[in-house]
């Protein structure tokens, strides 16, 4: 272990500034979410009459009772949360598979046809056939009203794929050569060397994809027909954006604000807690340690 030099005054001041700035930042960043949580526990009148608050005057769990009451919203909420968790898990794994295999292949600089393929990928990032043609493909493949329709049409994000391709490119070339001399096939190198060395990257894109699947309502809206397959975001949007429907129609009862806020909390917390679990993979030096170990 190395011995640190004694810190200079300048460095101590630097430390103080960094810690102070980041602490203030962290607090400002989290205030909106604290408000949402507070509002989900507040009474309706308090939300309507009190601006931004972090601690409700009267705490009530009525909204959550309704959401989780099986006779009320509960059945739909649990069912759709189940769909969301399932689609997010399966989708993220599928996405990581599709993305890393392709990214690793394209990270080989001397591959024949590489440039054409990269340009094609880039082309799809910029140009898109649009909603209706894609819908026809999904339908034509028999994916309409299946969970696969929530995953396959967006299983690779070209953006994530290109960035992970660059990550792979930066792996030390010597390792691959050494492995291929040892008799490893390219497949072996990918599975045994490239992937384990890219854990921070896998964690990052795993997170990106998971969040993408969790928040994706548009695919569900277009490609699903059966209500019981709806993921949670669709239910969430239905409640949060009800105000627009109520504007057009006096017969529509507006959902209570507290209920909206509680639904947002229920829909956000599961995906929010993914990050702390992945965090250990982001510590500096993890990757290098792996190479040497």
């Amino acid at each position: 272990m190395l011995t640190y030099k004694r810190k200079t005054i300048g460095e101590i001041i630097g430390d103080v500034i960094i810690y102070a700035v980041l602490t203030v930042l962290a607090i400002t960043m989290v205030i909106p979410f604290l408000y949402v949580i507070a509002a989900s526990f507040a009474t309706e009148t308090e939300i309507l009459t009190r601006p931004l608050f972090i601690i409700p005057e009267t705490v009530t769990v009525d909204a959550y009772k309704r959401i989780f009451d099986l006779n009320d919203y509960g059945t739909r909420v649990f069912q759709s949360l189940g769909v969301s968790v399932g689609v997010t898990l399966v989708g993220t794994l599928a996405s990581l598979f599709f993305t890393t295999t392709m990214a690793y292949g394209l990270s080989r600089r001397n591959l024949v046809g590489r440039n054409i393929m990269l340009n094609c990928v880039l082309f799809t990032m910029v140009f898109s056939g649009g909603m209706i043609p894609t819908f026809l493909v999904v339908k034509g493949l028999g994916l309409y009203d299946t969970y696969a329709a929530l995953i396959l049409p967006g299983v690779i994000s070209a953006y994530n794929m290109l960035i992970s391709k660059n990550f792979f490119q930066e792996l030390p070339a010597g390792l691959e050569e050494a492995a291929s001399i040892d008799g490893c096939t390219d497949l072996g190198i990918f599975v045994k060397i490239a992937l384990p060395l890219s854990l921070p990257m896998l964690a990052t894109f795993g997170l990106f994809y998971a969040v993408g699947y969790w928040n994706n309502y548009f695919g569900a809206l277009l490609y699903l027909e059966s209500q019981e397959k709806y993921p949670f975001t669709l239910i969430l949007r239905n409640i949060v954006f009800m105000a627009q429907a109520a504007e057009a129609d006096p017969n529509v009862e507006l959902p209570q604000e507290t209920l909206k806020m509680a639904i947002i909390v229920v829909g956000t917390v599961p995906i929010l807690i993914v990050y702390p679990f992945l965090q250990k993979h982001f510590a500096a030096g993890v990757m290098v340690g792996a190479i040497k170990g």
């Binding site: 548009f218 809206l221 277009l222 669709l234 949007r237 239905n238 949060v240 429907a245």
Partner: peptide
């Protein structure tokens, strides 16, 4: 869902 009915209609 009413909030996104237009898109579904177009599709």
């Amino acid at each position: 869902p009413a909030s996104s009915y237009g898109e579904k209609l177009t599709a």
